[in-house]
């Protein structure tokens, strides 16, 4: 659990950010005309929930594998490349869960397999939902489930600014790297990490002020409103 290699944090950060940018903001599959893309988001959310509950209720590993195969089938019908889908779903949650369950494979094999399979199936279906639905529509759909407006608005703005933050971090990392070269001493690296978080926070506060001004300038008075469609 201790970060032994001095570059570990640096590499982890850049890798995480890149993977995250690719995955959360990749929307090309949502715009394809495939099988799942055709369903309204409400239907998809409820079906995925039903599948997850089903996954939890069964104890049959065989049945879980059937669920999983169906998931892969739907993915390919929805024009998602299977290689990409496997990479996207196995990283990180099922792999993490596999590591977490590793010791249990030697004590209680059955439950360990059941556990990892359940996590894999649930995660795959959820990712299927997120890949085949435009995120902005997914966020809007929450409104139709009666989620209060303050949540919906915060969700929308949060989603918008996560991307900006990811870029800020990436740029800070690259800027630091270009100044000090590739190798950074562990102590120094720690210092940079602290500083990066502080600068991210500073950027947050500045953004808050500026965004508020931009909202105020266009007449914001504390009551969010939406267009009827």
């Amino acid at each position: 659990m201790k970060f032994s290699h001095h570059n570990f944090i640096q590499r982890a950060i850049i890798k995480t950010i890149n993977f995250f940018k690719e995955s959360i903001f990749a929307q090309e599959y949502a715009l394809q005309k495939g099988f799942l893309q055709w369903f309204p988001p409400q239907v998809k959310i409820i079906s995925v929930l039903a599948v997850i509950v089903g996954t939890l209720l069964t104890k049959s590993i065989a049945l879980l594998f059937v669920f999983y195969l169906i998931c892969l089938l739907i993915a390919s019908l929805s024009k998602i490349k299977i290689g990409y889908f496997l990479k996207r779903t196995w990283l990180f949650i099922p792999i993490f869960s596999f590591f977490i369950a590793l010791p249990a494979f030697f004590t209680d094999f059955n439950i360990a397999v059941l556990f990892v399979t359940r996590v894999l199936v649930s995660t795959s279906y959820i990712i299927l939902l997120s890949l085949t639905t435009p995120h902005t529509r997914l966020l809007k759909t929450l409104r139709s489930f009666g989620v209060p407006q303050v949540f919906v608005m915060t969700l929308g703005m949060c989603y918008r600014y996560i991307f900006l933050f990811a870029e800020v971090i990436e740029n800070t990392y690259l800027a630091v790297k270009s100044r000090v070269g590739g190798a950074i001493h562990y102590k120094h690296g720690q210092h940079i990490a602290t500083w990066r978080i502080a600068s991210l926070w500073q950027r947050s506060l500045q953004l808050n002020r500026e965004i508020y001004d931009a909202m105020l300038s266009r007449g914001y008075s504390g009551e969010p409103r939406v267009l009827d469609e």
Binding site: H135, G156, R160, R218, S221, E223, L227
Partner: peptide, 20 residues
Amino acid sequence: DVQLFCPTVKEDIVFGPLQL
């Protein structure tokens, strides 16, 4: 990036008139 704070372009464009 400050001026566009909504999840979609459309929501950003109509933000002002809706508020007003």
